[in-house]
Structures are given as C-alpha cells and as structure tokens.
Amino acid sequence: MRLLELGLIPQIVIGVVLGAVLGMLLPSLAESLGLLGQLFVAMLKAVAPLLVMLLVMSAIANRHESGSDGRKTFIVVALYIVGMVSAAVVALTLSQIFPQTIALAASAEGAPPVAVSAVLTDVLLKLVDNPINALLTGNFLGCLSWAILLGMSFRKAPHTFRDHLQVAADGVATIVGYVIKLAPIGIFGLVCFTVATVGMEALAGYASLATVLVAAMLIMALLINPLFVFLITRKNPYPIVIRCLEESGITAFFTRSSAANIPVNLNLAKKLGISEELYSVTIPVGATVNMTGAAITITTLTLAATHTLGIEVSMPAALLLCVISALSACGASGVPSGSLLLIPLACSLFGIPLDVSMQVVAVGFIISVIQDSAETALNSSTDVVYTYAVDQLGEES
C-alpha cells in the first residue's frame, strides 16, 4: 500500500529499475513481461485520437468570444517552428565541433520521401482524411482538422448539446487518467523487454554518435528551451522545464511515441492550470508537427553521412540543411523512429544516393534505443513547455 501512496514519478522510477534488473537476470521472461508495455502503449494510442477530437471540439464549441487564445495558439505554433530550427542549428554546431563518421550498415527497409513536397503533400492529405478513418488509423492531423470544423459548427448548437459534448470529453479524460496510473507497470514491461532483447552491446560501436545526439537534445532541453521560456515569461524557467521533463519526458522516453504521450501531456497541462482552450489545440498539434528532437536526429545523421563520404558542406548548404531538417521533422510521424525515414530526404541535398542514405537509416535504428527515446522525450516535453510559457502572456497585465 505504501508503494501506491508514492507519486507517479517515484513509481515509474521503481518500475524502470525493476524492469532493468529482471531484463538482465531473467531474459526468458522478457517477452511475457514486454506484453505489459505493449498493452500500455496500445491503450494510450487507442484513447488518444478520440480524446483529441472530443477535447478540441468541445473547447471550440464552448469557447468564449475573446480571441486571446487564438492569438496564443498562433504564437505557440510559431514557437514550435523556431524551436525546430534552433534544434537543427544546435545539432549543426555540435556536428562541426565533433565531426562523426559511421561504418555503413546493412540497408534498412522502408520507403522514405524523395522531396520536401512529398512530406507537405502527405500532411495536406492527412488534414482532409475521412474523420472515421482518422480515428481508426490514429491520424491526429485529420482528427484535429475535423474537430476544429465541427467545433466551429457546434458553436451555434443549443447549450444542452454543448454541455453533453463537454461531458463526453470529460468522460474520455477520466479514462485517460486511469490509463496513466498504469504507467509504472507499462514502463516496467517496456524496460524489461528492451534490456533483455537489445542490451547495451549494440550501442558500443556507435557510442560517439549517440553521445552527440543526446548532447544536442540535452542542450535544447536544458538551455535553449529555458531561454525561450525566460524571454516570454521573464521568470525562472527551470521549475516548469524540469517538471515537464519529469512528468512528460520520462513517460515519452519509454513509450517512444509522441502520439501515445498526448494523453499524458493533456493531463499535465490541466494540472499546470493552462487554459483548456489553448492546450486542447496546441498539444495535439505539437505531437504532430513539433519534432524538435527529430530535427536534431535528421541534421546529425545527415552530417555524419557527409563526413563519412568526405563531402564538403558549405555554410549556406549547412543553413539550408537546418531549414530542410525542420520542415522534414514536421512530417515525422508520432510513432517510434518516425524521423529516421526522413534522413534520405536531407541526404539528397548533398547528392548522397538513396542506397547509401538508407544505410545511414539502418545505423539510426541500431542506436534508436537511445536516440529515439531521448528524441521523443524532448519532443513531448517541449509541447507542454512552450504551451505553458505562451499561456503566461498577459497574466500579470
């Protein structure tokens, strides 16, 4: 019972430790225990699309006439873009200071986009997807676009209908609360399975590359993001930054899915007192387009490929890479390793052939147990950090 009285974060830490120990000592049980993690992630993914659609729809339908939240939503989205470009610049700087080379591995499977236009086309098609299909396939852009349109239409509906809409949204949010309470058990299963099946041996050959990636993400999380928060709020940024890393980043680190972490972020935003009209839109949008960590991954691995092949990268080309990485990151899906298949797009900027760039993708999969976990933790926690910062605008006026 004392264990249940602990906070969620201590429970998760205990789950991580027990999972790692059992993964090393009893690897034969890893597959069975890993099912606990798979069920946890599956539950989050199952409830997230419905939660997003109902929350956004209800928030807009019941929204007050003030346009302040609309302005703040625009600022948050703009901040997402600035953050991704900044992350790419951080990765570029570290890659120039500590140039990485890689031993090209076997080819990876998949069909990466061949141009930025392909990414943008995919985004547009997702926006106009059938709403039922969007819910079934976890297409959050489609869920978001239909929720906005329906919410605007329902603004003229009777108050009783809009109240029922809010009751439905609250009901799904309650279910999400129950699922989040299972996080320590789910993360225990995920860690146990990962340690038993992957271990740390696979990372040894690429430790330097993984270190640069993680260092860039730490700089973004602990220096650049706090700087943005300070410039907006003029307050000490670290309490909110650390809390978001603890309550959002830790779960995202182990689920490795921005989409699965949407319910966690919505719950955290509510606890932080952020306006529901703001976070019910910016959190789902952030999970789809705010891929700060993905911009770091794409930039770092692309530059590692150029260093390996001896390709000179001029400053204009490097800056263009940062922009391309940010745009490409917007097209990264909110699932594990969603950013890796966008690396060939960036590699094409330097004339690197597809078969070689796909080998770089394979290297990314080798280190993904660290890279993708850290990337998702940065992506997801940043969504709440930026939303909180912008929500503070005008609070003291």
Rank of each mutant, 00 (worst) to 15 (best):
M200I: 14
M200R: 06
E201N: 13
A202R: 06
L203Y: 13
A204S: 14
L209D: 03
V212I: 15
L213S: 11
L213K: 05
V214C: 12
A215G: 09
A215Y: 05
A216R: 02
L218M: 14
I219M: 12
I224G: 11
N225F: 11
P226T: 07
F228D: 02
L231Q: 00
K235I: 05
N236Y: 05
N236R: 07
Y238N: 05
I240P: 02
I240E: 01
V241R: 00
I242M: 08
L245D: 03
E246P: 00
E247K: 10
S248I: 11
I250Q: 00
T251N: 04
T251S: 04
F254L: 06
R256W: 01
S257R: 00
S257C: 06
A259M: 05
A260E: 01
N261I: 08
I262Y: 02
V264G: 02
N265Y: 00
L266W: 03
L266Q: 06
A269R: 02
K271S: 13
G273L: 10
I274T: 10
S275D: 14
S275N: 15
Y279H: 13
P284I: 13
A287V: 09
A287S: 15
V289D: 03
M291C: 14
T292E: 11
A294L: 05
A294Y: 02
A295L: 12
A295Y: 08
I298K: 02
I298H: 01
I298T: 02
I298N: 03
T302C: 14
T302L: 09
T302N: 09
A304M: 07
A305Y: 08
T308R: 07
T308Q: 08
T308G: 09
V313S: 06
A318M: 13
L320E: 14
C322Q: 07
V323Y: 10
I324H: 03
S325M: 10
A326N: 09
L327R: 06
S328L: 04
S328W: 00
C330R: 02
G331C: 03
P336K: 07
P336A: 15
G338R: 01
G338S: 05
L340M: 11
L341K: 02
L341Q: 01
L342F: 12
L342Y: 05
C347A: 14
C347D: 10
C347F: 10
S348V: 13
S348H: 14
S348Q: 14
